[in-house]
Amino acid sequence: MNREARLKLKTSVLIFLVIMFGSLGNIFLSKGMKRVGTFSSWRPGDVAPFLAHALESGLVWIGILLLILFFVAYSLVLSWADYSFVQPASSIGYGVVAVLGYFLLGEAVTSTRWIGVGIICLGVFLVSQTPARTTEQS
């Protein structure tokens, strides 16, 4: 495998991990926070107990762990790939969340949202046709 193909494969694998960690992290965090209850007051005396209560949830911790892994994978791929390549490419996570929500959680997904997902996929396809790295490595 030549250098360019290896770079493309490595970038694709890392962006896939970015998307999965980010999407699953947000889903777990969202599920966990919904169980914790509604955040209703910004007073310092109320914020701390609310956060402490949220951190008792296992789902919140799984969400936080996945989002840390998301940040690690995102930082690693940025060590070689263009930011203007990685950022739009990872937006396909919006589609992943819609598909996971529809098939796994049975959530209703409106036609506007599906059209949006389709347009994102088209945009990401176009971005993926450009080289992942256009700058020289330092």
Binding site: P88, Y94, G95, R113, C121, L126, V127
Partner: peptide
């Protein structure tokens, strides 16, 4: 091509969030 892709992503994300 990348600008066009980014533009489509902007439109798509807006629709997903409004939908």
């Amino acid at each position: 091509v990348r600008w066009l892709g980014v533009g489509l992503v902007c439109v798509g994300v807006t629709l997903v969030c409004l939908g």
